[in-house]
Design a binder for these strands. Structure first.
Length: 160
DNA sequence: GCCAACGTTGGC
DNA sequence: GCCAACGTTGGC
């Protein structure tokens, strides 16, 4: 099992949106970064725990616990000329972009602010904490993942 | 709104 | 293969 963090701009898609989605699940579509794609396509497996992070707000924070809810499959938005993330270079026979589905497990007892995460020496090395990290789908070391839940006031319930 | 850091594109 | 231009991300 691997542990992950995904970022979302709440104005585009928030934790509340995920909780309100049918079956609390959504296809994580629109990612157009090869590193992020490779994680989704090759490494993310159903049941893997995922931290859900709100970016581009005054207090960026991890807000929810989610999980991978499907195997990876081609992102349909790459083939849709009307979609903002349409990729004219992608062919159905040879998809370029892949996604997994994400399911909300539970909201954290409280958001864990980026500022707080930066104060934790044992979290050094998390990609999120790199200066100007831009990777929107990233692996998290298991110990760091549990530490974030701990900071939120959770036990590791449902994760380990 | 600013701006640094990247990733991608495309001319050469 | 180089590298400038460009677009995007995301903290502040």
């Amino acid at each position: 099992m691997s542990f992950w963090l995904i970022k979302s701009r709440p104005s585009a898609f928030s934790w509340a949106d995920l909780e309100a989605a049918p079956a609390r699940t959504t296809a994580w579509a629109g990612v157009r970064n090869y590193q992020a794609r490779n994680f989704m396509r090759d490494r993310m497996k159903p049941g893997d725990p995922v931290l859900f992070y709100h970016s581009q707000i005054p207090k960026p924070a991890v807000i929810g616990l989610a999980e991978v809810a499907s195997e990876s499959y081609p992102d349909p938005t790459q083939f849709d000329p009307g979609h903002r993330r349409y990729d004219p270079t992608a062919a159905v026979a040879e998809p370029r972009w892949y996604l997994v589905e994400i399911r909300a497990v539970r909201q954290l007892e409280r958001p864990v602010l980026l500022r707080e995460l930066r104060e934790q020496p044992e979290l050094e090395g998390m990609d999120l904490l790199r200066q100007r990290s831009r990777l929107s789908v990233q692996p998290v070391p298991p110990a760091a993942f549990l530490r974030v839940l701990q900071l939120a006031g959770s036990d590791a319930g449902g994760v380990s």
